[in-house]
Amino acid sequence: MRNSASAEWASNQRIADFVRRVGAVWIAVIALYALSAIISPAMFQGSQVLNILQVAAFVGVIACGQTLVLLIGGIDLSQAGVVTLVNIVCTSAMDGQNANIAGAIALCLVLALVIGLCNAALIVVFRVTPLIATLSTNSILFGAALVYTGGAPHGSAAPAFNWIGQGSVVGFPASALTWIIIAAALAWLTRSTVYGRWLYATGANPVAARMMGVPVRRMQVSAYVVSALTATLGSLLLTAYVGTPSLGIGNQFLFSSVAAVVVGGTALTGGIGSVVATVGGAIFITELESFTNIIRINTGTQMVLQGAIIAASVLFYRTIAQSRR
């Protein structure tokens, strides 16, 4: 009895170890893919895989920065507002002319820097709870987009710029390629540099980190700035994908940018998680959306399913984390 129980325990432990090593989210990505391909053969086509990667790049890039914020124990709900405002400003500044591309991108990056610093100031200097601070910023950004356009957005993305959202490099979507580069850079930054170690230390225990000499407040500022920057880059990719301004374009990311990070396994409590896992999270939620678009279920069921999976993954990661102790 005892032997079989301990053997079972050992095998459970082996499974848990395996899941941790590979990353649970990647197993989920593959399992969902296999399941959806069985139910709908359309999901099995190479072109559909590329299609999913192309679309996942938008939320994927945005969620990369969100990962850093969650790692330090914060949250950034202003990314949705950044996406909308950048879409509006970028199309307005480009006005369909290739000559304006550089200027428009520069303008958007400056905007990102300002927004990131504002968030950081509210949270780090004025000690407003991140949830409230960034939700307020989000509202301000949506309002700013509305005031700037008066409800009537104008301009359009330049033809040459659209390549980054619609084009491909030897068949591989340019947007996905951009995403891989950004994610790789941030993965390296968080995994292989002192900055990265400080980031994890700040999230795990800010008091202990401060005593060890980690510049905790500067780490927090940097995370919010990076988050605003990746939201901007994601918005630029999405703008290049559609080519037109829209005041509603950012809405979906209020939920999905956090969802991708959480499904990837990054803890909302800080200190645990990784950018690479977030890449998996972004692929997973896009895959799920694509799958639910293809099979015949209504929008309500789709939303219930997505919400349930986010909640389930949080429970799952907590269980895994506890089994490690």
């Binding site: 994908y241 037109t244 509603g248 678009n293």
Partner: peptide
């Protein structure tokens, strides 16, 4: 499918439907 009357969502959803049909 519902698209929220948004061009970007319509494009993403249509890309999925194209794969399916």
């Amino acid at each position: 499918r519902d698209t929220d009357w948004s061009e970007d969502k319509a494009k993403v959803i249509m890309a999925d439907l194209i794969a399916a049909y």
